[in-house]
Design a protein around this nucleic acid. Structure first.
Lengths: 173, 173
DNA sequence: TATATTTGTAAGTGATTACTCACTTTTTAT
DNA sequence: ATAAAAAGTGAGTAATCACTTACAAATATA
């Protein structure tokens, strides 16, 4: 990945995440990246190719975020890390996640199974802690985490801090 | 509101909700509505005017959905109705709600205070039921309901039915 | 050093975009 | 019945769109 390729991708990410895919023109991306418009098509074939390249990156980040939780062996810690995870996202990754959630509404890219590894681990944790319906509890917590992430991306971490404490207390962590 | 104005709006709603605002052309809308393209601009000034008109309708539906909950005096019933509400949405209203959630990601239309009346009523209900932190419980339930609605809009009611029972049991309803 | 390949540009391309305008038809008010 | 207003049309507009192409500069390979 050359310097200019990287600049094109990061510019596209910023614009797609904040303005939307269709609302962003390749001309805008080229200007922001400081390259000629043609270069975008040399490297990424077409506009959708840009989105595809970004999507691979987003999926990578998602997987990386999971690993810590997946390899944790203490069920209480699994829940704790999960609840705290939305608050650990560095600010420079916000565009990544904004794009991820926006893509949820673009049918081509929506894939609910992406979260399955996390849900499975949470279900295991709830089972260890003798909850009655661990799968349901897992799905519920996963959905709540997702909702908190969305709220953080829109209103900032501070707006959701009380939630963290509330959830930690609710699950006796 | 004339018949053609109505046809234009309903066509725009369907297209905006499913294809997105920027991905929908005024030409498409006119064809779907069976009117000339010029008429759109006579009635709604510009493309954004269409979205504004739809937004008013969406806000109306939102308010209407609240009224039953707001006027309920039994706290347990307030929670029950709230939890059941996403499952009561008629299928023909799905486009409305899809647009509503899509607009959440457009800064111009995002207004988190819209849900406040519901949250206030839920907080009152939790207080009546002697929950420790009623405001927090209210926000949490509201967020869960929102998440369930999103899931229903994407995957259908059936996919979320188990949730309803789970939540009703959780709150002892 | 010569040559092939990759990286990059700038000026295009036709298609599509939101929107306008001159005009006709229909409805409303007197 | 008649005039004014509103509803509706359809061809046209400049601008913008994603994308191509011809060519130059830089880099890698021999």
């Amino acid at each position: 990945m050359t310097e200019k390729q990287d600049k094109i991708l990061s510019s596209a990410l910023e614009l797609f995440a904040n303005e939307g895919f269709n609302a962003t023109s390749t001309n805008q991306i080229a200007k922001k990246a400081g390259v000629s418009e043609g270069l975008i098509f040399k490297h990424f074939k077409n506009k959708k190719g840009l989105l595809d390249a970004l999507y691979v990156q987003v999926e990578g980040k998602l997987g990386a975020g999971f690993t810590q939780i997946i390899f944790e062996t203490d069920p209480k810690k699994v829940l704790k890390i999960t609840i705290e995870s939305p608050f650990m996202i560095p600010h420079e990754d916000y565009d990544f996640w904004r794009l991820q959630f926006k893509l949820k509404w673009e049918s081509d890219y929506y894939n609910p199974e992406k979260m399955q590894p996390l849900i499975d681990k949470l279900a295991w944790a709830f089972e260890e802690l003798n909850y009655e319906t661990p799968e349901m509890e897992a799905k519920l917590l996963e959905q709540m985490i997702e909702t908190i992430m969305v709220a953080i991306l829109r209103q900032g971490k501070e707006s959701q801090l009380a939630y963290k404490d509330f959830l930690l207390k609710k699950y006796e962590l």
